[in-house]
Amino acid sequence: MTSIDEIVREFQDADHQEMIELLIDYSESLPEIPKRFSERVDKDLNRVHECETPVFIWIEIEDGKVNIFADVPEPFPTVRGLVSILVSAFDGLSPEEIESAPVDFISRLGLAQKLGIRRVRGLSAVYARIKNEVKKYSEVT
C-alpha cells in the first residue's frame, strides 16, 4: 500500500515524460477483478457513468478495511492508469480514512498542469464515487 502523501510526492516530482511512465506503471499494475464481479450480469450498476470510458468500481468493507476493485478495459491505458492511482491510494484504508481524505487529492497530483486539464476529466467523478460508496456503506452498517 502506498500512502496518499507518497503518491502525491511521486507525481509532484515527475516531469511530463516521467509522469507518462508512472501512469503506464499504474495502468499495468491495476489488479484484475475477481470473477464474482466480472461475471455479474448487473455489472452496469457499478459503472461510473460520468466517465466516457467504461469504468467499473466495486467497494467492499471487511474487518474495518475498505477493499476497492476497479475494471477499465485495456485499450484505454490512460484511464486505467488514473483509476489505478485511486485504487492504490485508497485500497485497504479504513472508511474513516477515506472519508477524511483530502478533497483536492487529484488536483494535488498536478496531472492537469503536466498532462492537460481535459485528460483528467472523469477522475474526480471516480474519486467522488469511491467516497460516496464508502459513506453509504458505513451508514447502513
Binding site: 507518462i20 503506464i24 491505458p77 485528460r119
Partner: peptide, 8 residues
C-alpha cells in the same frame, strides 16, 4: 487523445 498509447 490517450497520452499513453504511443509509449505502449
Amino acid at each position: 487523445e490517450d497520452i499513453l498509447l504511443y509509449e505502449i
